[in-house]
Design a protein around this nucleic acid. Sequence first.
DNA 1: TACTAAAAAGGACATTTGTCCCATTCATAA
DNA 2: TTATGAATGGGACAAATGTCCTTTTTAGTA
Lengths: 191, 191
Amino acid sequence: MIRSNLELAAYIQMLYKKGAYDIREEQFNAKHKIIEQDRRYNRVYVIVEGISKCYISDENGKEFIQEFLGEGMEFGELEVFSKKHTICSIETITPLKTLSISHSGFNELLENDSLFNQLVMKALADKIRYKAPRHSYQHSYPIEDNLLRLKKIFPEFTSVICKKDIANYIGVTVRSLNRALKDLKEKNNQI
Amino acid sequence: MIRSNLELAAYIQMLYKKGAYDIREEQFNAKHKIIEQDRRYNRVYVIVEGISKCYISDENGKEFIQEFLGEGMEFGELEVFSKKHTICSIETITPLKTLSISHSGFNELLENDSLFNQLVMKALADKIRYKAPRHSYQHSYPIEDNLLRLKKIFPEFTSVICKKDIANYIGVTVRSLNRALKDLKEKNNQI
DNA sequence: TACTAAAAAGGACATTTGTCCCATTCATAA
DNA sequence: TTATGAATGGGACAAATGTCCTTTTTAGTA
């Protein structure tokens, strides 16, 4: 549920310590919007500490959360490959510490550092691998099943992530989420 | 709706003509399952001609179609980066012509051909960019809106793709799809 | 402490979608 | 040509989810 990539986190920190390229450290408070949908930015970020959410909002303001990003997850990288606007917003949930690098530095690294290249390639592949089953599962199973599944992979999710975000992650309304939680409680399946 | 990547198609054909690596041409009939979920394979495919579907099936046999793949789309590449089982099945819709390359050849290309590396990287990024808004849109809009949207980006979709596949792509039952189509017809919004 | 806004919980009802059927059409193979 | 199974279309009802609203709880702040 909260994605991470410890290998990438370790590697980017190693690069940072070596003082290579123009890697920069940044800190953000909770509830800070780092990236806004449909804009252009010129840095790629890797999370070193904390949790943020990556979401799409539609014209009615509805949010659909794509993933929760934890240590080692990168964002802003898609726009390096296809020079278009961002498709997601990124907002911190907890205070966040990141390392970031400019598009040109990122490209240099991809070109010259074969291990970095492989790590980024694998990170992209993992995002795809992860998304596919999640959406199909959510679509074809009732809310209760989705909650039990979340509980299994991340037992304390209800205390870290607010109801609205959980609902937007599963793709239902808060009302429906509450209903499902209540029903589970009555069945003695505490969440 | 039917994804394509003409740049990659052209590039892989150029490599094939040069006789480089171990690129091999293959043909498949319609309704042939090329890749089965939860298996291991050791080749990466690029579609040169035809249409196939990429789908996940659950334990009840329900299919959820991830994308329809057209010219230039690759499949089987995710398993090069993370050495795990396939997450999707690939089945042809029309007769299909592909070029394929072994995992080791693919890795060699990534390592030695910087342009190929970039094309693959971009292809992965595009798969992510494409998936995100699609799923969130499907989730938050009624079936009719989804159909009108499909109609806009691919007007003749109903004649190329069977009802079951369209339903599995949108993530609804065939019954619901038929209901929506009928309602649209009554509103004079022919599809 | 008292006030305020946001988050959480849930009642009542409407709407959408699914499930379970059955009838019809279409394509294909015997 | 006939037989067979798949694809299509839709009726009737059940179940899941959304919408709209109100109340309660919580957390933060004057």
